[in-house]
Each structure stands twice: as C-alpha cells, then as structure tokens.
Amino acid sequence: MAIGYETIREAAQKLVETVNYEAGKPLEQALREAYKRETSELARKNLWNILKSIEVSRAEKIPLCQAPGHAPLFFVEVGEGVKVDYRLVDALKEAVRGATQRGFLRPSIVDAVTRENTGDNTARYYPAVHVDLVSGRDWVDLYVVHKAGPAPIKGIYFEDMGPNMEAVVEYVLQNVVSIGAYLCPPLFLTVAIGGMSDMCMRESARALLRPIGSRNPNPKLAKLEERILEAVNQLGIGAGGMGGDVTALDVWVEADGTYLYIAGVANHLQCWPIRRGRARIYRDESFEIEVY
C-alpha cells in the first residue's frame, strides 16, 4: 500500500503547525542553560522574553515568531520498503497553504520581481523540498525547519582553506560579527564545506536538522565545531544582540568532496526559534511527530 497524498498532507500540516507553537525540549533546555550562565543583564532580559514566549506559545498554541522565514523547508527521506504518492511535493505545498490559512504561518513569500505577496507561502519552488531515498527502512521521515529570512545569506568559494580550516573559522567569525546581531541570537550556526555552491548551501541547510549537542563523527570536524562555538561565544554579541556571553547555542559542520583546487563553503546563521521537527509516516499511514 502506498502512503497517500492525504496522509502526507495531514502529517506535514500537523508537523508545521506543531513546530510553530511548540519549542522542542532540547531547545528550551539549551536556552534555560544559557539564561543560567549569562552574565549580561540585558542578555538575561532578552532570554527571559524568549523563555516566556516558549511558555505562551505552548499554552495558547500560537506561533513563537510572526516570521516564518523562507517558509517551511522540507527534507524527506523515503525508505526502500514504502511506496509514496508521486504528488508528494503537491501534498507538502497544500500543507503549507493550510497552515498559512489557519494562522500558523504569515504569508511571507513574494514574487521576486513584482514583490507581490503570493498569499499562501507557496511559489514554484516554495516550500523547498529535498527528497532522498534511504535503504533499510519501511517508513518515510518528513523533516521540517524554518530558516530565518536572511539565514542563508552567506555562501562563497575559497581557493585554499589550509589544513586547519583557519579560513572557515575566520569566515564564520566575520559573518557573525557583521550580521549575527540582527538574526535573532542566540544562533545556530551551520557550515558545509565542499561541493558546488548549490550543494554546500543545501547541506548547510540540512545541517540545521542536527540535534543540539551532536558532534560530527569525523573527529577533525567535531573539533572544528567546538572551536567555532568557543570562538563565537567570545565575541560578546549575546541573546537579543545587545551584548552578552551566549551568542551561539551550537555549531554543526558538514563536509564532502570537491573539485581539485577549490571548495564551496556555506554558512547559515539561524535564529533561535528554529521550529524544526520530524513526522515519521509508517506503511499503515499512521504517523508520529517529534519536535526537537
């Protein structure tokens, strides 16, 4: 039996609506710890507002933030043991349209030329959907994340990064100093090294799905993550961008192959209300939602 259009739509809409009003427990925990260790009075006030908004949204089922960013971004993993309705992307579009109509998403996608609001957060390539086929599973995982509007603003090529990735650290630090305060810190930072510009941008976005506290299995990249996190948290930007100790909650780095003498490097600067989660849809069309 194939997982049908209506099941995908229902699971996706429920997922989008839930992540908009329900902050994941690991996110809340990270913010509470930030509040405890923060020494700046202004940053503590901002963290207090953040923690309050988490409580208000959970109690009243209203969105954490009015701005959905680049509309919900989907990563779909289809297991080898399931069949899925081929109108998957249409079902996700309808889910986004439905969540918009029900007041969980502000219509925030406009025609790039005329600037006319499309009214329902959809366009030809909105919501963005990436599909992967995965072996050894008989279910579908729908992941969603809400990228801040300007989050994917940074992505470039380096000719030579040096064996210790100095240029990557330097690049992220420059980005955080130049725009980090405006992107609703405390931030999540992702970096993808390798590939062409579209590949590293996509993988940098996918890295936004990683659990808080997770480290890249490659020890060299794990070390790079810790190095960037430590350095960024010495900049003094803080929650709310008014000065403080906790500028980033976590850093996730991914790397892949690339062409002989260049490598793409992409860096996302993601706001604290990351609004992400997963809907796992089983063969019998039942599904469960996890917010993290």
């Binding site: 953040i50 908004s53 969105p63 008014m242």
Partner: peptide, 13 residues
C-alpha cells in the same frame, strides 16, 4: 526602543 527578536508570542501580550 528594542524588543527581543523571535520572541513574538511574549511580545504580543
């Protein structure tokens, strides 16, 4: 005057 970015539901109170 500044308010915390992202904390809209608290702001809305």
């Amino acid at each position: 005057l500044a308010y915390t970015g992202g904390a809209a539901s608290a702001c809305t109170k």
